[in-house]
């Protein structure tokens, strides 16, 4: 095993890092930067959600709400109570982690449609609370969030944000890749395939489901609170049913159970609506059509295209040899 293998620096992560380094040179204006940062934050949430959905096989239609609630906690602690932003994010992570672990027990006993509905229900309730408790959250209009000041240095320029978020994303990818390639990752996949099999070799299935749910909520919380600080504004829209659905679609579109699928799906579905604004009132309609088309023609996600190319090459190679 060479050194790169030992520390699990894969070809994929090197290529992806290279892309992240090149992108800022291509981006032309402030708006492009914002879009890129937003895509990376969504990608982070999706990596966590994919661990839950694609690897452990548990659906969540509430992750938008979890990310949003985490974002609000971070935003409120800094804006209203002058917490150091890092401390705010840490507090949000601890709170949401405990919250997720507690609710995970009863929720993850459910399966299929019932699980989908339970996570959806919790998400919608969170969203309603954020809308109604306007004295704390600013209600439907949302709230302004103080800027991210760390050690007297204000994170203000888009380029700086880009670097911070990109580093965080690469780091997230790396630790999740480590997890997936470990006994822990194998346990998650076994739970997806057969809970009975996992149970009969001594795996405490409900505990692992709770842990993976909590991990995914924590990652969503970090991304959600960074989003608040970055955009200087947070609204219940971030925690809406629609956002939860978008996140699930991103994961499935990229490819369930494929680490980089989540990144690709998040990037496409963040950028696509912006491109579609050119179609003005047709935007939603086209967006819906694209989702339908992908689910019909590419249900295994965009990454599966890559598999097909490889397969094709192999077959060609086999023929010629």
């Amino acid at each position: 095993m060479n050194f790169l293998e030992r520390i699990n620096i894969t070809k994929e992560i090197l290529i992806f890092t290279a892309i992240l380094i090149v992108v800022p040179f291509v981006l032309q204006n402030e708006f492009h930067f914002q879009l890129a940062i937003l895509a990376m934050l969504n990608a982070m949430i999706c990596i966590g959600l994919n661990l839950l959905m694609g690897y452990a096989g548990q659906v969540s239609l509430g992750h938008g709400a979890f990310a949003g609630l985490g974002g609000y906690i971070g935003a409120i602690l800094t804006t209203e109570y002058q917490f150091n932003p890092l401390l705010s994010i840490l507090s949000a992570v601890i709170f949401m982690g405990i919250f997720a672990f507690i609710i995970s027990k009863p929720i993850l006993k459910l399966k299929g449609h019932y699980l989908a509905m339970a996570t959806l229900g919790i998400g919608v309730i969170i969203n309603i609370i954020l809308n109604v408790e306007y004295e704390i959250t600013g209600g439907t209009d949302g709230m302004a969030v103080d800027s991210f000041i760390l050690f007297g240095f204000e994170l203000f320029e888009s380029m700086h944000w880009y670097i911070v978020v990109a580093l965080l994303l690469v780091f997230t990818l790396w630790i999740f890749d480590n997890l997936i390639k470990s006994p822990f990752g194998r346990i998650l996949r076994s739970i997806r395939d057969s809970e009975k099999a996992a149970d009969c070799v001594g795996i405490n299935v409900s505990f692992y489901k709770s842990v993976v749910f909590t991990i995914s909520v924590v990652v969503a919380t970090i991304a959600g609170s960074l989003y608040g600080f970055f955009s200087g504004f947070i609204s219940p829209q971030e925690a809406s049913f629609n956002h939860s659905i978008e996140l699930v679609v991103m994961v499935v579109l990229g490819g369930l159970g494929r680490l980089y699928g989540a990144v690709i799906g998040a990037t496409i579905l963040t950028v696509l609506p912006q491109l579609l604004t050119a179609f003005e009132e047709y935007e939603t309609l086209i967006f819906g059509l694209i989702i339908i088309a992908i689910m019909i023609f590419m249900p295994k996600g965009i990454v599966s295209l890559w598999d097909k190319i490889l397969e094709f090459k192999e077959r060609k190679f086999a023929k010629s040899a």
Binding site: M53, V59, G112, H113, A116, I245, V248, V249, V252, L256, E281, Y282, E283, T284, L285, I286, F287, G288, L289, I290, I291, I292, M295, I296, F297, P299, K300
Partner: peptide, 25 residues
């Protein structure tokens, strides 16, 4: 649809819902 796993069918109906909302607009 080529896949009949319930998650992709759920998403297909969600996509259809978005499409109908867009159509209504």
């Amino acid at each position: 649809s080529k896949d009949s796993s319930h998650i992709s069918l759920i998403i297909l109906t969600l996509g259809f819902a978005i499409f109908l909302r867009g159509l209504a607009q």
